[in-house]
Computed example of a mutant assay.
Amino acid sequence: MLSDHWPLLGLRVRTPRLELRPPTENDLAMVADVAARGIHEPGRNPFLSSWADRPPAERAQEILRRHWRHLGAWSPSDWALGLAVFESGRPVGMQHMHGKEFAVLGEVLTGSWLGREFQGRGIGTEMRSAVLHLAFAGLGAAYALSETFADNPAALAISRKLGYRTDGITRYAVDGHARPSQRFRMSRAQWEATDRPQITIAGLDPCLAMFGAERPRPVGG
């Protein structure tokens, strides 16, 4: 089976209403359909590039290219995990987690997108909680990082609600304009002190070496 050679295919993270998993080809097609239907209001791009402003077919193709590019470049010292997010069996978006030299630094950077039709219902907060659980409880991370443009109030609210601390400002040149981005950082101790929904992880043990991770110490230990 393909999962014998790429055990990430068996990874599952579940919250009370969501399942996050590496997408199969069929999953990826459905997620691309969500992106094609729209991610944000016109003129309010929350990303470093303008891929979500492109025509529907190009948005869908970008989802495929990005996923395949990350798979092809994967190594334990530099990886990017893309998890398709499902609610009641239907795809709603993608949650990403990146790690460079994770075995040394123990840090992950998260990012995500959610179909516009599914926004405003707390799904973004729940999927971020899920990937934080994977990072800290699953991989034993020391820190989780996030970064959000200063004019993206929904994403800023998620980071603050989940207990991140501000970690400075980065300025980016986007479409010929300077845009400030707020950095956030959460330590393992801060994460352990927060209230969280019930979250479970399945299929992680065979994947640990792919992340450059060892079996983590128990939460609270």
Rank of each mutant, 00 (worst) to 15 (best):
A193Y: 06
R160H: 12
A178H: 13
G212K: 07
R59A: 05
G106S: 05
N45E: 11
K100D: 05
P22Y: 06
V31P: 02
S159N: 15
L9M: 11
E41F: 01
A141P: 15
H5S: 11
L83C: 07
R196K: 08
S146G: 15
S129P: 07
I63Q: 11
M1G: 14
V108M: 09
Q119T: 13
P180N: 10
G10T: 09
V85M: 05
L105H: 11
W191P: 15
R185T: 10
K161M: 03
A150K: 00
P16W: 02
E126S: 02
P153N: 06
R217Q: 14
W79T: 09
L9V: 02
S77L: 11
L48V: 13
L2P: 08
R160P: 09
G89K: 03
R37D: 15
G115N: 02
R12Q: 12
T194F: 00
V92T: 14
G120V: 07
W68P: 00
F47V: 00
V34A: 04
A52N: 08
R44D: 09
D195R: 12
G99V: 03
L114I: 13
G212Q: 11
A209K: 12
R66Y: 14
P7N: 06
P23I: 02
F184E: 11
L162C: 08
F136M: 10
A178T: 15
N152A: 05
A35N: 02
W191L: 11
M30N: 04
S75Q: 12
E117Y: 01
Q182P: 09
K161D: 05
P197F: 01
R65S: 08
D53A: 04
A80S: 14
A57C: 00
L105A: 10
A157W: 02
